[in-house]
């Protein structure tokens, strides 16, 4: 067993997810199944191998810093679950 229920609880907290006891049990089994499969990567000698963060070309994509129109505020706020006076409304964060 690579992953215990306690690990699942910890990772769920990091990922901002919550589960029932039954779900935790199932996710523990699923994650162990997948991670056991992934263990095969340990067979591969990667000493002195560089990492690849992209598929093919990774290069800087620079452009001139030009002022352009951005999205219209109202059109974006239409998708907000709650808004007021042109702002997204959220629960109180600071006491």
């Amino acid at each position: 067993m690579l992953v215990t229920i306690r690990d699942v609880e910890y990772v769920a907290k990091l990922a901002r997810l919550e589960f029932t006891e039954e779900q935790k049990q199932r996710f523990t089994e699923d994650l162990n199944g997948i991670l056991n499969y992934v263990e095969m990567l340990n067979e591969v000698d990667t000493e002195n191998v560089e990492i690849s963060i992209g598929a093919y070309r990774v290069e800087n994509a620079l452009r001139e810093d030009v002022v352009k129109d951005s999205f219209n505020r109202d059109s974006l706020l239409k998708n907000a679950p709650d808004s007021q006076d042109g702002f997204v409304k959220v629960p109180k964060v600071i006491e």
Binding site: V3, D7, V11, A15, L17, F27, L35
Partner: peptide, 18 residues
Amino acid sequence: RSQGFGDEVKRRIMLGTY
């Protein structure tokens, strides 16, 4: 997030976060 995402999405988020 817990109500909005389905099981497979949660499974991948969990695996990736781990």
